[in-house]
Amino acid sequence: MSYGKFLVKRILQGFVVIWGVVTVTFGLRAVSPGDPVNLIVDPAASPELREQIREDLGLNDPIYVQYVEYLQGLVVGDLGYSYQSSREVSTMVIERVPATLELAIAATVVAVVIAIPLGVISATRRNQPSDYGATLFSLVGISTPNFWLGIMLILVLAVQFGLFPTGQRPVGFADAMHSLITTGYAHDLVTWLRHITLPAIALGTYFTALITRLTRSGMIDELGKPYVTATEAKGLPGVLIRYKHVLRNTMIPIITVLGLQLGTLIGGAVITETVFSWPGLGLRLINAIYALDWPLIQGIIIFIGVGFVVINIFVDSLYAYLNPRVVDE
């Protein structure tokens, strides 16, 4: 199979997944209890007014007609209209994307900076205290729920010691960098870093533990191969062997997991954003669920699903480019 056919196959599979997400969310809305008209007008409104609203919204149409009309709207980028907020859903989703991406990327950076060196140390010092410590850290990190860790970080580092704020995000990364470039002052950037540190640690801990274990196992596997013995026989320094040759060959599966987990972090940031009142898609989704704002709920879920599919396709295509044997499997 050629690389082009492989890419087309992945894209078609992605469309099927997106269609499945759209269908499931629409179906949940159709079977959910309650009358959508109650979210627009008072339940005590006259039957004539309620019937007129149902007619205007197309709620009297058969369910398959509503489904087709919803799909037609999605094709042109129309995610619907939130009558509770009196705003377009697409606008409400897009304005929260930067905060969620900042948190997901920051959690990824935390994971990579900690996990890869820790995995290398664990693999090169097997059965030593540092290896046991890294293994214990990985086990604890994978077993710890991020919402509990977030609450503990707030209680200890924010409330008890006052080292970090408890939540919110008074300034975004783009605005902080713009202020740094235009004024030369780093106050906004420091503020952003202080606010994102705890959420990024809480969200990235599981990811850190996963990458640590993956790096350790990959390094151990590579260290046992003949080319390592050959490079050692040539007298190359151990640091050069570990980081230029062994770690480089270990990075392909790590890069794959990084890309896939980035999509998972975007969707999994819901609880972390709620704990830290982080103004991203997750917090908006929780508020929409409380308010039974179905158009907004659907829009956010579909957007997260599309983002996850796009990231997966990108990672698959990159992995196939780096390792052409994947195309033939």
Rank of each mutant, 00 (worst) to 15 (best):
L118T: 03
A174Y: 15
S143C: 14
V246Y: 01
P165T: 11
A320H: 07
G224C: 08
E69V: 11
T191H: 07
A45P: 09
G263I: 00
G280S: 04
V159W: 00
L296D: 03
L285W: 10
Y81A: 05
Q13E: 11
L155A: 06
P62L: 11
L322F: 13
A104E: 00
G224D: 10
S143V: 12
A320N: 07
L153M: 04
L71K: 04
K225L: 05
G235S: 12
Q84V: 01
L193T: 10
R87A: 10
S32P: 03
A209K: 05
I241K: 02
G133L: 11
Y83K: 11
L198K: 01
R194G: 13
T100E: 08
L236H: 10
F161H: 13
I255A: 12
L49T: 12
V315L: 06
I286S: 12
S2H: 12
I300V: 08
T23E: 13
P226L: 11
S85T: 08
I11R: 04
I254F: 15
T250D: 09
T166A: 06
V41L: 05
N127D: 14
F207I: 00
I286T: 12
A99P: 05
Q160T: 10
L7K: 08
E102P: 07
V270I: 15
S138P: 02
V37C: 15
S143R: 12
P129Y: 14
T256M: 09
L210E: 05
L28D: 03
A107P: 01
L203F: 01
V75D: 09
